[in-house]
């Protein structure tokens, strides 16, 4: 990559941060050049973020329809999946999945709620609600 080819397209997902890249200068030497971001990166980052947001929204619909518990919604909000949430809480995956059942979630002891809230980085009260 030539120094003048370093992308400066402005990547919104970097939120104003700049990134340094190595590029070839006119003298043939490689050096660090600050980049404001590349459209390609923005596309793939937005794609991943949107996919997670879509999952969270679908979970939200299902919570409102009484088909799942707020736990699943908060899991996607925290950009996690069942495997990661299970590891973060130290619970088995089938237990996490079981806690997606609204009836089971409603009876969840305070101890487990604290564990989930801690792993998701939210408060215990927030865990039981949508937002």
């Amino acid at each position: 990559m030539r120094e003048r080819d370093v992308p400066q397209e402005g990547n919104a997902t970097l939120a104003g941060h700049r990134k340094a890249m190595y590029a070839v200068g006119d003298d043939g030497k490689l050096r660090l050049v600050p980049s404001r971001g590349w459209e390609v990166e923005e596309i793939v980052t937005r794609q991943a973020v949107e996919d997670l947001e879509r999952r969270a929204n679908e979970a939200r619909e299902r919570v409102l329809a009484g088909a799942t518990s707020p736990l699943e919604y908060h899991m996607y909000r925290a950009r996690m999946d069942v495997a990661l949430l299970a590891q973060a809480t130290g619970l088995w995956r089938w237990r996490v999945r079981r806690h997606f059942t609204p009836r089971v979630f409603a009876r969840l002891p305070q101890r487990l709620r604290r564990r989930y809230a801690e792993a998701l980085g939210i408060s215990v009260e927030a865990l039981g609600k949508l937002e």
Binding site: K19, Y22, V40, E41, I43, V44, A48, D51
Partner: peptide, 15 residues
């Protein structure tokens, strides 16, 4: 999503 993931691993992490 799979292709996007490859590009993300390629470009996003660090430099």
């Amino acid at each position: 999503l799979y292709i996007g993931h490859i590009v993300r691993m390629q470009e996003e992490i660090g430099t």
